[in-house]
Design a protein around this nucleic acid. Sequence first.
DNA 1: CTGAAAGCGCTAACAA
DNA 2: TTGTTAGCGCTTTCAG
Lengths: 342, 342
Amino acid sequence: MTRTKKTNSKNISIKDVARLAGVSISTVSRVINKFSSVKESHRIKVLDAVKQLKFQPSVFAQRLATGRSNVVALVIPRYEGMFYSFYVLELIRGIGTLCEALKLDLLLHIIDGKLSFNQKGVGGIIFADIISNRHQVEEAFSNSIPLVVINNYVRDLEVTCLALDNQSGAAKAVEYLIDLGHKKIAHISGDMITQAALQRLEGYKQALKKNKIPVRDEYIIETDYSRGQARQAAEKLIKMPDRPTAIFVASDSMALEVMTVAMESGLKIPADLSVVGFDDNPSGLYGPVSLTTVRQPLVKMAQDAVKELMILMDPKQEHKVKKILMPTELVIRESCSALKNQ
Amino acid sequence: MTRTKKTNSKNISIKDVARLAGVSISTVSRVINKFSSVKESHRIKVLDAVKQLKFQPSVFAQRLATGRSNVVALVIPRYEGMFYSFYVLELIRGIGTLCEALKLDLLLHIIDGKLSFNQKGVGGIIFADIISNRHQVEEAFSNSIPLVVINNYVRDLEVTCLALDNQSGAAKAVEYLIDLGHKKIAHISGDMITQAALQRLEGYKQALKKNKIPVRDEYIIETDYSRGQARQAAEKLIKMPDRPTAIFVASDSMALEVMTVAMESGLKIPADLSVVGFDDNPSGLYGPVSLTTVRQPLVKMAQDAVKELMILMDPKQEHKVKKILMPTELVIRESCSALKNQ
DNA sequence: CTGAAAGCGCTAACAA
DNA sequence: TTGTTAGCGCTTTCAG
């Protein structure tokens, strides 16, 4: 807690500026808020005074007086897997830089299910996924605070959301493997508490079914997105008597681990095992074999989220709820090859 | 911008609570602020009313009235290399979770050199490194806003800072290589606009000199911390007629890339080339050969920074500037071996 | 184009 | 223990 008041007597307010400039505080206020109706000579005087006194308006007073707030909260579930992922940093970066440009104050909340923060005073909220914090979304919704959900296609709530088309991305990846002649395709999935993991699994199954390839349960292994569990899963799959010839992995960092395990076991990639990841994490570019993966427009999604939120925060605009699905794209690199001995 | 005022007439204030509870607004205020001097029966009534009305106090009014602010800003330089690094996410996570626990509002500013944000209304600032944004630190300093600098040992400013002991960490790493019998030790450095890169280079040189090993300029290659430049650097070193037998790399992600390049060139690690990284990035645990590296207490540094800031923000405490150096630790794994043909 | 004055919602003396 | 009241710094009618 910092006293900005009495202790720090040199705190300058709009009054001081007004006095120095020889005008009323309303005029100062007008200049600050760029009203066009101020006489040029006055404007200059005020601006000079502002500079001299290094005046910065109190945002609190402004917000109290106007009832408006340009504060945006970014709520990130406090979930381990979240922070393993490439995803979250891109998100923060995308949102952070755009908010800076738009002069929005970005408040960061890393929150677990229970905790609740004071939503009053926040102009809008961006939820980075919903994981065990659904009630917070509902709370904001019922408080009619403008909000946007990212990375989760929310069907059962009247909220604007932007999500990746995980299912079709996954399906594309698996169909690509099928086109290469693979039939024994395994899937190392992410954590099923995330929608992304569920949808990627769904896409995997969909592609198999569409091509009349039976879905084999033993070929599907769930993980928490960590490399450690990816390793275990890979080892298990590789040891199978009827070993898969291709693996679709729910994240790039796990896919990299799978490739490592495979190579340790003496398998060649892609000759002996094809691997596809998901994320387009730049790490996939490196390594002995570059990773074929599904690209997702993370930064765009993040920035679009801010833009959508801006619309919702603008009282002058119409507010219809949007459900946006961002396209994904298969990026073919070196980690897959056509099946030979077929 | 959101109207919290007229448009949204159902905005409840302390007055409404007072009316419903049948007490004065001061009593409500006292209950909210946990004054012990409120009669129990009144407290209960107020709390009930608060619940019924779903009242949340306006933080703006509170801050305006008290002159106190529990807002902490985290300022991150908008520098590409920052976001390549493992560092920044750990930082955000460490600071974010602690702020949440302490009920501090965390404001995130991703900022390039020029931009300046309204520092008024911010109770304290944490600067995540100083890279081309020194003047912002100076500005905050001259505004006497409580501030802490992380990851940069600031000598020429009377500010509290917490930094990693990069130099001794680097020296430890290089001495370890020397102890293994290496004499031809190269260094792939980070971006020299960061203090960390400079200090790691310094530690490298220091260890060599201490052991009477000449510093060879051609063995030192500067990068921007990216894997791409690490690759180039590694290729260059490996092709040298008098190839180094060991490389100390300024970051783990670059070190991983170096290992990959080496393996692509048919070199065995650690038999033909020893590699040490810096960061203790979990990625280093995986891969064909686990990476020997220098561990740094990132989360601790982040959280200590918040604690130090809290002290500075507390008007009741003494405020002496502290310069804190966090220890680093060599983590020996598999990527180094003793030099044989010596 | 400008100034006076009434709030915005809350806290903190001060009195009672 | 409680209520009254004067601000906190700014915006915004409303007159002029």
